[in-house]
Nucleic acid binder design. Structure first.
Lengths: 278, 278
DNA sequence: GATTTTTTTATACTATCGGTATAATATAAG
DNA sequence: CTTATATTATACCGATAGTATAAAAAAATC
């Protein structure tokens, strides 16, 4: 991406975190990044689209950090899960996402609302999947309930402490919530106490799945493009990546290992992380 | 209050619920209520102040409905508690408060933010107190944790279902959350697992207490003013109310009974409800 | 009933907002 | 060198919350 455009995004990002979305005018962004209004609207169709670009960037980074946390550890590692939750909360805090998301709900931009809603659903689906990995298939029927509960307790506690201007000990909060979930799991599995259909989120997936296909396509094209200018030994690595990514369940560790030996891999790493963590 | 002013509030309230706060312009309110801009800014110093007036009115009505629910039932009646929680959620839904509150956080009006924050703390304090009434003094050290948990699970589930455009069965959600809390209570009391200091909200009370003194003063003045134009038999009732309200723990049932025999009691009922439920 | 005071109205105004339009200028590519 | 693209400065649009003001209407006072 254009270096200059990235500079504008960084400036806007800083202003949004500092003053909030609504309180930051386009004029502020122009002055901070030293560009003209024409250039701004050449880069971004609207202020809302700029915000979405920033969200997307944050999201990519979050997924990468979460993948790193889990790397080399079993999926049922509870400590890894706590750390992964923590990553999200840290990102939220660093980027003042709580306030930014609220600004979105106030705006009348339907696309922006949908974007944030989808993001929330993705997070719940991720939590749901991870909880099943943690506690086993027995909890699958209750996985949405548990995800909503965990998410609710953690988020509500954090927001409360922030409103009360108290120190927020993320580790303590997450571990506390996890202890509550563990007790709830035993209780719920035994009494078969279910509130929501665990497949309720699948209805919100198709669009995502399409999106995934698109990402896959972009990824394959990128690898193809790289192959055209690559040396022979690189060719082999890239071909292998293509095959492995096309598999129904790509072996992530192997991909990671191969990726480390690809030159000029920056963009590719980003794309693959995005694809794999979707 | 001015009848005309109330009509404006009702019109604005309807528009806010229908279109949201930010999307409703002052001009919209003028047209719907058929007043001029000058009159509007004579009634309300700003659009934000109008919103606060509406919040306050909603809050009074919520407290009244909650008091009615509990009337004549023991404080440890779990079903009554469920109904009281439901009252709040219904009010939130009817008035689209979730979106309205978010609009507040986006606005840069510090007073408005403070107002909503205080409202949230009051709700938590209320939940905390009721949970102790329900589960006994043993849970007091953990009452904030439990209140935040209950609140978090219920609110998050409701918001999720609304976002997913699913039907929201308030009763089922609240009862589910209560079952989780009951299990958590046993677990927590046994393991002495505490996250937050149960007195954490007391720090946010002094201002409330001042506010309460102010309400008391307004109430006493109102009764005094009514005495000046009242008949002798009314005088006695009003004097009794003053004495009783000054007591450290006013006997609510008796106040209610006496109040029923006061003529022209509308405003008084509102003030007393507000004071008593604070 | 006349006079005074208060409330309401209509209208024009300010400053700011997100976004558009355009003509001139600078930079890069062919 | 020429052409195409990117950037700039600037004026503009419609909508926003809120202010100012003078005239008209309503209410209160004498």
């Amino acid at each position: 991406m254009n270096e200059r455009k990235q500079k504008v995004m960084a400036a806007a990002h800083a202003l949004f975190v500092e003053k909030g979305y609504a309180a930051t005018s386009v004029q502020d962004i122009l002055e901070k990044s030293g560009i003209s209004k024409g250039t701004f609207y050449n880069y971004f169709p609207s202020k809302n689209e700029l915000l979405m670009s920033i969200f997307e960037k944050i999201n990519l980074e979050t997924n990468e950090r979460r993948a790193e946390v889990l790397a080399g550890r079993p999926v049922h590692d509870k400590e890894a899960f706590v750390e992964q939750i923590k990553v999200k909360l840290e990102v939220n805090k660093e980027n003042n996402l709580f306030v930014l998301f609220q600004g979105v709900f106030v705006s009348e931009d339907a696309e922006l609302k949908k974007f944030v809603k989808q993001h929330h659903f993705n997070e719940l689906r991720w939590t749901q999947r991870r909880l099943i990995e943690l506690f086993g298939e027995d909890v699958r029927p209750y996985s949405v309930d548990l995800a909503v509960t965990l998410y609710g307790v953690v988020q509500n506690t954090v927001h409360f402490l922030m409103a009360a201007e108290e120190q927020v000990e993320l580790n303590a909060i997450i571990r506390y919530a996890m202890r509550r979930v563990e007790t709830a799991v035993r209780d719920i599995v035994q009494t078969k106490d279910r509130l929501l259909d665990s497949r309720i989120l699948e209805r919100w997936q198709p669009e995502m799945a399409l999106n995934r296909e698109k990402k896959k396509s972009v990824l394959m094209q990128k690898i193809g493009a790289m192959q055209e200018t690559a040396a022979d030994d690189q060719q082999e690595l890239l071909s292998f990546l293509q095959d492995e990514l096309r598999a129904s369940s790509p072996r992530l560790n192997i991909i990671q290992a191969v990726l480390n030996n690809v030159t000029d891999r920056e963009e590719l790493v980003t794309l693959i992380h995005d694809f794999v963590n979707d």
